[in-house]
């Protein structure tokens, strides 16, 4: 019981600290890392709620897959020293909006959670949160929303690929006229996956600076990803 409580406070502090870090840290790379810490803390909280599957999914999907893409983009594009923040109307409305959201959330949480403090909490049946139970719920009771959500994600992925290809202008670029380069280029650069996996993270690294990018050394610290496969001679073939 004691271990449970210690872990709860560790995870809660980690979650809050991580969330604060995302907002307050100046370096975008550290912000992303703070978000990773936040997500891992959330996974721990899920574990304490006996939702092992959700905890594992949280780690695999969010900390593992989604955040990797964030880290990718930020590591390539990052190093921006000036503060990222809106000027003008959005900059002034932002704190107002955040304050309103905080008040609303406080009302909701206090209203629903206060009566539960003295009780023993919700009754948890055996097998609750296990992979089997979640699979049953997803594929029997909520089959249509589940499929609709997956279809939505598929459409988003296809849309991201289409948009990325249009912006790059595969037909126009002189570098891509060779048939084998045109076919290989999107897979050859490691950042190509952002276009396929999720277009909602802003413009991916690979699109802005294609193979024909005239600025070779944008940042001495950050090597150009697209250039990576090119200098390797044909001798490296298996």
């Amino acid at each position: 019981m004691l271990l449970e409580q210690i872990l709860f406070f560790v995870a809660a502090a980690g979650a809050i600290g991580g969330a604060l870090g995302v907002v307050l840290l100046r370096n975008p790379f550290f912000s992303v890392l703070a978000l990773v810490g936040h997500l891992i803390s959330l996974a721990l909280l899920f574990l304490l709620l006996r939702a092992e599957f959700i905890a594992a999914a949280q780690l695999v999907v969010y900390a593992g897959a989604v955040m990797v893409l964030y880290v990718f983009v930020v590591a390539y594009v990052g190093g921006i020293e000036e503060a990222v923040g809106g000027e003008g109307a959005i900059g002034r409305l932002g704190p107002l909006f955040a304050g309103a959201l905080l008040i609303e959330l406080c009302i909701a949480i206090v209203g629903s959670a206060l009566p539960a403090i003295d009780s023993r909490g919700a009754h948890v049946p055996a097998g609750f949160g296990s992979p089997g139970a979640i699979g049953k719920v997803l594929l029997e009771r909520f089959l249509v929303p589940f499929e609709a959500a997956s279809f939505l994600l598929l459409v988003a992925a296809v849309g991201a690929v289409v948009l990325a290809r249009r912006r790059r202008g595969l037909e126009d670029a002189p570098d891509d006229e060779l048939p084998e380069r045109a076919g290989r280029a999107p897979l050859g650069d490691p950042s190509g996956r952002e276009r396929a996996d999720g277009g909602d993270e802003g413009p991916p690294a690979g699109t802005a600076e294609g193979p024909g990018d005239p600025t070779p050394e944008r940042d001495a610290e950050r090597p150009d990803p697209v250039r990576d496969p090119e200098p390797q001679p044909a001798g490296g073939t298996a």
């Binding site: 990773v36 891992i40 996974a43 092992e52 599957f53 905890a55 594992a56 999914a57 780690l59 695999v60 900390a63 593992g64 897959a65 990797v68 296990s130 992979p131």
Partner: peptide
């Protein structure tokens, strides 16, 4: 022997990247 079994390995495999 966790109930999520092999997902345990994947969860930590995902973190190994960091």
């Amino acid at each position: 022997d966790v109930s999520i079994g092999i997902l345990w390995a994947f969860a930590f495999g995902a973190l190994a990247f960091y």
